[in-house]
Nucleic acid binder design. Structure first.
Length: 463
RNA sequence: UCCCCAGUAGCUCAGUCGGUAGAGCGGGUGACUGUUAAUCACCAUGUCCGUGGUUCGAGUCCGCGCUGGGGAGCCA
């Protein structure tokens, strides 16, 4: 297999006059009597490369001009400065081979399609400008996330995808079973007997890697997970999917302030990374997906991240001159409209809201001395509201047990989690970030189904 | 799961008061000496989502269903 040159690399380090071979798919064909232009794209960049066919150089010119949108080509030619205005270089063709043809039924036309239509042809949409940009950004961001944590000395841990703990309260589990759908063995009470199932117990797909992540933090100090996560909720919104990817760092010997420091550094790093390393695609998003995107991301990359207490946030909202659809009252959770008001109007930039009422937060969050709040934090950013949610964890065994009892969380299935508080427990903290929501935030795409390669949502698992 | 909106050509959509459907793009054919979603001319587009009903007559009105979108809840 010969080494294939990516078009992006070719254009990044051009050698004018050199003979070059590239491979890719036809985006556009423009034919005149003496010259024809084919825009070839191999996914490595947005623009692709313009290849030029001249009648005088190609005996087969008329036949080659019949090449259609969508065909796969292998072309050899000379890289030359382009006389055209829209590209610096172009490829003057000497040899052209059609690797795979595409007939006129090829669903992607040389025109703008709706995102809804492209969703129905998810197997072909990566060949469009928009989805090319989305999935290049997604790939680059995934690698940047690993680089960020690697630079900070974090250990990457793969927490289990199949789990037996369904008591995390984070949503409905998908069941994992090897029992036959009909005629599953029953126990004396008539219920399905999971003791006879593959794992000898009731299992499901993970809804969060946090609890296991905490265990690794108690051995390696700083860790993160980055993996698939599943929720069987019947949510039909632009922000929910049944299968998504989540990033969950966890730090031992750390408190809520350390947690916020990490989250701020993380978001700033990723904003800067996208602007600097994905500039062509980001400029495309700014032009075609969300006008003002670059300015929005730049301002976050350069911002000081403000910190306010939940109490303070409630007071701001109660004094607001605008009217909200949902009530504002101490003890109630913040709705998206409240979050956006805080970050967009009150602060005018990213803001952490700290220390929420314990009643609206999870059992594992550290109880504050005031007896009514826990050390939780949400990072709010303009346009979307909450983008990161985290907390300092309750490291004191007795306090944790009391809270679990109050909230009706059974302790027996979590014996291993509780053990981490029994021996060498440390103050520790972490947060969770939905990867797709990050990609949406940085690209301006407004539907989670358009930043997942093959989205899984209620009634949709076709591709 | 609840509320709202939509479904007409390959795609995006128009279709008036109920009288058997139209545009742009795309496709085909031809023209054009360098195009940039090329341009110009000509040609062909159809289970009007499905189903039941009202009516002399339904793309149009009504019921049910399916699909898509938006909002809510849940959350990442």
């Amino acid at each position: 297999m010969s080494h294939r040159i990516h078009i992006a690399d070719l254009l990044r380090c051009p050698t004018p006059g050199a003979s070059t071979t590239v491979h890719g798919w036809v985006r556009s064909v423009r034919v005149s009597s003496e010259v024809a232009f084919i825009v070839l794209n191999d996914g490595s960049n947005l623009e692709g490369i313009q290849v030029v066919l001249e009648r005088t150089r190609l005996p087969d010119f008329d036949n080659l001009c019949r090449i259609t949108t969508g065909s796969a080509l292998r072309v050899t030619g000379t890289l030359l400065p382009s006389p055209g205005a829209r590209q610096q270089y172009e490829l003057q063709i000497e040899e052209l081979q059609v690797v795979g043809t595409a007939d006129s039924h090829y669903p992607l036309q040389k025109k703008r399609h709706s995102l809804e239509y492209l969703r129905s042809i998810a197997h072909l949409r990566p060949r469009t400008n928009t989805f090319g940009a989305v999935f290049r950004l997604r790939s680059q961001l995934a690698q940047a996330i690993h680089r960020f944590f690697a630079e900070q000395g974090f250990l990457y841990v793969n927490t289990p995808i199949i789990t037996a703990s369904d008591c995390e309260g984070a949503g409905e589990l998908f069941r994992v079973t090897a029992l036959p759908p009909n005629g599953a063995p029953r126990n004396e009470g008539g219920e399905i007997d999971f003791y006879q199932d593959f794992f000898g117990r009731k299992t499901g797909l993970t809804v969060s890697g946090q609890l296991e992540g905490e265990l690794f933090a108690q051995a390696f100090g700083d860790i993160y997970t980055f993996g698939p996560t599943f929720r069987a909720e019947n949510s039909n919104t632009p922000r929910h999917a049944a299968e998504f990817w989540m990033i969950e760092p966890e730090m031992a010997f750390a408190d809520l302030a350390d947690d916020a420091d990490l989250a701020a550094a993380f978001i700033r790093y990723l904003c800067r990374f996208a602007l600097e390393q994905c500039s062509e695609d980001m400029a495309f998003f700014d032009r075609h997906i969300e006008q003002g995107l670059l300015q929005r991301i730049r301002s976050v990359a350069e911002a000081d991240f403000a910190r306010i207490e939940y109490d303070e946030a409630i007071r701001h909202l109660q004094q607001a001159t605008v009217s909200f659809q949902f009530p504002v009252q101490w003890g109630l959770d913040l709705q998206t409209e409240h979050e956006r008001y805080l970050t967009e109007t009150v602060v005018g930039g990213p803001v952490f809201v700290l220390n929420y009422p314990k009643e609206i937060k999870a059992f594992y969050m550290r109880q504050n001395d005031d007896g009514r709040t826990v050390a939780a934090m949400d990072l709010l950013v303009p346009k979307v509201g909450e983008i990161i949610g985290g907390s300092q964890r309750e490291e004191r065994l007795e306090r944790l047990l009391t809270r679990m009892q109050e909230m009706g969380v059974p302790r027996e299935p979590l014996w291993w989690y509780l053990d981490s508080r029994r021996w060498g427990s440390t103050p520790h903290a972490g947060f969770g970030l939905g990867f797709e929501r990050l990609v949406m935030y940085l690209s301006g795409m407004e539907n989670i189904r358009d930043v997942l390669p093959f989205p899984r949502t209620p009634r949709h698992a076709e591709f």
